[in-house]
């Protein structure tokens, strides 16, 4: 089954065809976004254009709003009571994802997510990967088998688990669990993968494996990664955005951010003087 050509609700009728666009064209357009948790404002007037098939890193000290912005991109913040995007728009391929006609379920299929703490379901490896597909009503055995292999290969996990696909996902090591979560995310063939500090709970070797994986995935997916680790941002991203106190301080090519930051705060942060 191909990706549905839109993420608007099939019942609402509004449907915009997806046309593949060249690498580097804008996929996600964050336009003057203010975001609130109840009465406290977490994001102030964020403007950011995320490009297709590139890795964009969000860096900044704790509490700067980078995770909040990431979770706005697939509307995971909807699950928290009292959150709202007060002003501005987030558009993916020109569609405002906070528009009432948008089908959130369809949006989340198109914008996948990998969490800080690996969270495989208490099910088998196979079941973990096919979960998203079964939600879509796909149950053809050979079809599912193919997707499982493809996704696990995509997440560089196939060789390690191919003999125990039906044992519990919770039996894997921390790094393997995180790659399983990535495999689970790419199984539903999203366009964008959001990664919320995917390596913060991993040891250095597992971290290297995930970083290598990100390098492979960038050819197929648009990746947005939140990280505390500046070397990681420098190693794996094309573009970097630096946030501070809910504001976007600087957004530029990664090389520029780390070698030649335009802003004094950015310079102080990337050189380790605060944060």
């Amino acid at each position: 089954m191909d990706i549905k050509p839109s993420f608007t609700s099939p019942t609402s009728g509004r449907s915009i065809p997806v046309t593949p666009s060249p690498v580097g064209s804008t996929l996600i357009d964050i336009d003057h976004v203010d975001f609130f948790y109840g009465a406290s404002q977490a994001l102030h007037d964020i403007n950011l254009k995320i490009e297709e098939k590139k890795v964009t890193a969000f860096i900044g000290p704790s509490g700067c709003g980078k995770s909040t912005l990431l979770r706005c991109l697939n509307r995971m913040n909807d699950l928290i009571d009292g959150t709202r995007v007060a002003n501005g728009q987030i558009k993916i391929r020109g569609i405002d994802i906070y528009d009432p006609s948008v089908d959130v379920i369809e949006l989340r299929k198109r914008v996948g997510m990998v969490f800080q703490k690996s969270n495989p379901f208490p099910k088998s490896i196979y079941e973990n990967i096919t979960y998203g597909l079964r939600l879509q009503g796909r149950s053809n055995k050979s079809d599912l088998d193919a997707v499982v292999e493809k996704s696990l290969r995509g997440a560089a996990l196939w060789d390690e688990v191919k003999d125990r696909l039906h044992s519990s996902g919770l039996g894997l090591s921390g790094g393997q669990q995180q790659r399983l979560c990535i495999a689970r995310a790419i199984a539903v063939e999203p366009e964008v993968i959001l990664m919320d500090e995917p390596c913060s709970a991993l040891d250095p070797i597992a971290t290297v494996k995930v970083e290598e994986l990100i390098q492979e995935l960038r050819t197929k997916f648009t990746i947005v990664i939140v990280t505390h680790n500046m070397q990681q941002a420098a190693r794996c991203s094309d573009k970097t955005a630096f946030f501070y106190m809910g504001k976007l301080i600087e957004f530029a090519d990664t090389r520029a951010i780390f070698m030649n930051p335009a802003n004094a705060q950015t310079e102080a942060y990337v050189s380790g003087r605060f944060g």
Binding site: M76, R108, F121, P122, G132, L135
Partner: peptide, 11 residues
């Protein structure tokens, strides 16, 4: 986390 992962997969 289980719940979030499920929602993030479009459930």
């Amino acid at each position: 986390a289980f719940k979030e992962a499920s929602f993030a997969l479009g459930a």
